[in-house]
């Protein structure tokens, strides 16, 4: 029902004709500064759309006259960041891992760089912090297959383990004692008991005794007479309670019968020399470095 605009008695302002529960609204205009800010925002949004990528289309989008993209901005940031670190990278490239460890500044830089490179490249197998998982060695303990000195770690990183594409890769292979019918199932059970006896975990002393001569003949050459292992050959030490593929009798027997062999890629060519040095220092610092 159209009515004549009603005026507020005190201010003389018009009252909007709608009403909710007796509450009416005065038709006060917006403050001018507020309107100016509003217009300025519209202007800025137009300028923005001209300068920056803004409107999506079917096959592309308006690029804006500044040619800005977040990807380029990121690349520029990364270049600037690398330049700011260039001094450190140069010094690391010129130093051996042992020298890096001697220099507190370089050590800090290498540990930080190594940590981030480790998380990107190594942690998927060796787990965060080098904690390892079944089949993938723990890098934080002091039990090393191929040696835990800085040089040995660097060599492993550079050339990998059983990595066909690298001629200098570390290679060793344990015979498949059951699959190739070198030993019988019973003989393997006896050797298993003998091996577990190194760490006082054998539950069948008689079997362990029967296993002793088999061990001496078949295993001792690589794993050592007392199971001390041989890092030259990458043969694990058996006289401690750290087991790559599990330490129960079943799992040890399975490993003797048809052994699994871990493979690690060579990282030379994938990572630059400096990153490999930082990784060397970082892995060495995880607690087991020798």
């Amino acid at each position: 029902m159209p009515t004549k605009p009603e005026k507020d008695a005190i201010t003389g302002t018009e009252i909007r004709s709608h009403e909710w529960d007796g509450i009416q609204e005065m038709d006060n205009p917006l403050p001018r500064w507020w309107l100016y800010v509003f217009y300025a925002s519209i202007l800025i949004s137009i300028i923005y759309m001209v300068l920056y990528p803004a409107i999506p289309g079917i096959t592309g989008y308006t690029k804006g006259i500044l040619g800005y993209t977040e990807r380029h901005a990121l690349e520029a940031d990364l270049v600037a960041h690398r330049e700011s670190q260039a001094g450190f990278f140069d010094r690391i490239a010129a130093a051996t891992p042992a020298e890096i460890r001697e220099d507190a500044d370089l050590l800090n830089f290498a540990l930080a760089g190594g940590k981030s490179a480790f998380a990107d490249n190594c942690a998927p197998c060796h787990a965060a912090g080098g904690a390892g998982r079944a089949g993938f060695p723990n890098l934080a303990d002091d039990d090393w297959l191929w040696g835990g000195s800085l040089d040995a770690i660097q060599t492993t990183l550079l050339h990998g383990i059983r990595w066909d594409q690298d001629d200098d890769t570390r290679v060793s292979e344990m015979p498949r004692f059951l699959a190739d019918e070198i030993l019988t199932t019973e003989q393997i059970a006896d050797v298993t008991q003998y091996v577990l006896a190194f760490v006082n975990r054998a539950d069948d002393p008689a079997a362990a005794a029967r296993g002793a001569p088999i061990y001496a003949e078949q295993c001792g050459v690589c794993h050592g007479a007392k199971g001390e292992g041989n890092q030259e050959l990458g043969s694990p030490r058996l006289s401690n309670d750290i087991w790559q593929y599990g330490g129960t009798a079943d799992l040890v027997a399975a490993q003797i019968g048809n052994p699994q062999h871990g493979v690690m890629p060579s990282w030379s060519g994938r990572l630059d020399e400096s990153t490999i040095k930082m990784l060397t220092v970082y892995v060495h610092s995880l607690g087991g470095g020798q």
Binding site: A127, G129, N138, A140, D141, D241, G287, G288
Partner: peptide, 18 residues
């Protein structure tokens, strides 16, 4: 204290925390 790994078992049987 390190949470990854929580502890490390060493060859001589001792336990190490970082």
């Amino acid at each position: 204290r390190d949470r990854n790994p929580l502890f490390v078992r060493l060859t001589d049987g001792s336990i190490r925390n970082g």
